[in-house]
Write a protein that binds this DNA or RNA. Structure first.
Lengths: 112, 112
DNA sequence: TAAATTTGCAACTAATTGGTTTCTTAATTT
DNA sequence: AAATTAAGAAACCAATTAGTTGCAAATTTA
């Protein structure tokens, strides 16, 4: 059973759950009310999110409040960071090209 | 066939492919050499990445060079942004709490 | 204490996924 | 022109997934 954070956010229902409980902790029943699907299906999604440590639970009597572990989402951000680096590098390269171009133009101007 | 960017990056092989071609465009054969799996399997992954517009292809003779569409990765970043906002808000709230606490302390001090 | 509520778990099912093998098409060598 | 190479497409298969129904455990409420 592959179960990492990327697989966790692949499902649109799970992303919606994440969006819901990001604002405030909720019980499975309350979460399920926001969807067409059954409470049990939501429960399964919550288990997957739990296994990935994307959510935490707090028992209050017979209710369980599920809360988003915002920090865990940073792992996705970290994965993205390497590509942001490339992205910014490309811009820097463009800067260099433009700078070189400008230098050449300046040289040409000076030799006119 | 659900086929969005989140589902595209859910597979570890596809994430590895993304990492590979981020640096420079590659042909399916070259990409496949980096993995245990078959060229055909890689070809399937490339098709999925193409359908999500995460990669672009450039035909050169009988070879096809696949290149990462860095911009598309920003969609993930945008999804993350809403949670970053919450994250930063929580810090601001903490700041407010601390500020209030300080004010109260100051008041107390002034009434001593 | 009995009934109702909240939740998780197990068994089952249909659809999807990632992979393989085989085949075709197109371009390049020889 | 014939052989080789690069790549996509189709058919098939095993594993996984997301969902269902039914049930058991624990907590509240009447």
């Amino acid at each position: 059973m592959r179960r990492d954070i990327f697989q966790a956010i692949a499902d649109p229902t799970r992303r919606a759950i994440i969006g819901l409980i990001a604002v405030q902790a909720m019980t499975p029943n309350t979460i399920a009310e926001h969807f067409e699907t059954s409470r049990q299906a939501i429960s399964k999604h919550l288990r997957i999110l739990s296994e990935c440590e994307l959510i935490q639970q707090e028992q209050k009597g017979r209710e369980i409040y599920y809360q988003l572990e915002l920090n865990k989402l940073k792992e996705i951000d970290q994965w993205l960071a390497q590509f942001k680096a490339i992205w910014e590098n490309r811009f820097n390269e463009l800067d260099n090209i433009l700078a070189n171009l400008k230098n050449k133009t300046d040289e040409n101007e000076s030799t006119i």
